[in-house]
Nucleic acid binder design. Structure first.
Lengths: 210, 210
DNA sequence: GTCTATACACTGATAGAC
DNA sequence: GTCTATCAGTGTATAGAC
């Protein structure tokens, strides 16, 4: 953190991000956010009128960190196999930098799915660029060419994302049960998983006669 | 619900389960639990002295729903391929009946990983029966025989569990983005995924010359 | 913009009657 | 065992001075 001369609004968002992502909407306290930002509670309400509004801002920022890269990769001109490998590589790196975001997003969406609707309404472009349809078209085109096995795109995408995200959100339980709660060992596990997941997925969708 | 003449303690646990799993530890209110159980707050504290203690009880019950079946399947005498297929079948059914538990458990463990340590201390047998070691031994034995590809057991287990659990915990986001928030369509998706996941996993671990 | 002081509602928990 | 009444503490939010 070199740039400590951030403006108040930025300091608040940084502090709010930390507290909300660690404690959740209901567990977070405005006092703790104010303390962490080095200001007082009143100023919090001056910039963001309510806790709810501050939370929504934090959620939106967290959510948006994972969207642009997905669009960029999936709408690029590469073949499917390359896209998937690059997607895994790219998102596993991103998750190393932001390990708390997926759990935060998933948890808050389970408590209040409406948040997602609000985000879509605010950022219509996310829904409008037909990311899924275009990727699906590419998949089915490559299936016809025999480059990959016949496969349902939604199932494939769920698997790719799940294999990337699950070890991060379920870290406490997996690390606890399979790694005797050894943090360093689990970090090493996550690192080697990049290639493992790539191979795992490629193996199950490449044609048998390849 | 035929048996409505449950004792007070049971009614409290049922109500607490609902509220805690939906709102989380910090979002849950003792008043709401009391209302749902048809009693008053004071009686809540008579049975479970504090909110924390009531929560721990609920968490322990939720957690224990998923453990015995896992031990039973993984320590059985079947070959690995059969175990995995049966595991997927069995746990996807279980999750259909208890869809809120995984998100609840994962979220609360992220906020306070210590909970897991407490559970292990209370139920030493979970740690003591060396479930992982035995399953790992079987895997490596079958690898040597050429029945399955060489594979790391921890990575394989993470994948199997992740592919089962992820679509449940991340339901709001996947259903929202890939299924236009259509609940029925997503239920159908989950149903069809059983066979898809089985095939996906088997494909990536069966030897190439099989 | 930033602060101190405070309003006001709510929460977990307890006392005490029955 | 179950209730009503109530307390002490904490939470979000606002008023008003600077």
């Amino acid at each position: 953190m070199v740039n400590q001369q951030k403006d108040t609004e930025g300091k608040i968002l940084d502090a709010a991000k930390d507290v909300f992502q660690q404690k959740g909407m209901t567990g977070a306290r405005m006092q703790e956010i104010a303390d962490k930002a080095g200001i007082n509670k009143a100023l919090l309400h001056y910039y963001y009128r309510t806790k709810e509004k501050l939370f929504e801002k934090v959620f939106e920022i967290a959510f948006s960190i994972f969207i642009p890269r997905m669009q960029e990769i999936m709408l690029s001109e590469k073949p499917v196999f390359e896209k998937i490998e690059f997607f895994i590589e790219s998102y596993m790196d991103l998750l190393t930098k932001h390990p708390y975001i997926p759990g935060f997003v998933i948890n808050e969406l389970n408590r209040n799915p409406q948040i997602l609707v609000n985000i879509f309404e605010k950022n219509i472009h996310i829904k409008e660029n037909k990311l899924f349809e275009k990727f699906d078209a590419q998949i089915q085109a490559e299936v016809k060419k025999g480059i990959i096995k016949p496969i349902d795109t939604r199932n494939l995408m769920t698997n790719v994302i799940g294999l990337i995200v699950f070890p991060i959100v379920a870290r406490p339980i997996i690390q606890g049960i399979m790694f005797d709660n050894d943090k360093k060992q689990y970090d090493a596990f996550l690192k080697q998983r990049k290639d493992f997941v790539k191979e795992f997925i490629i193996n199950s969708i490449k044609p048998v006669n390849a």
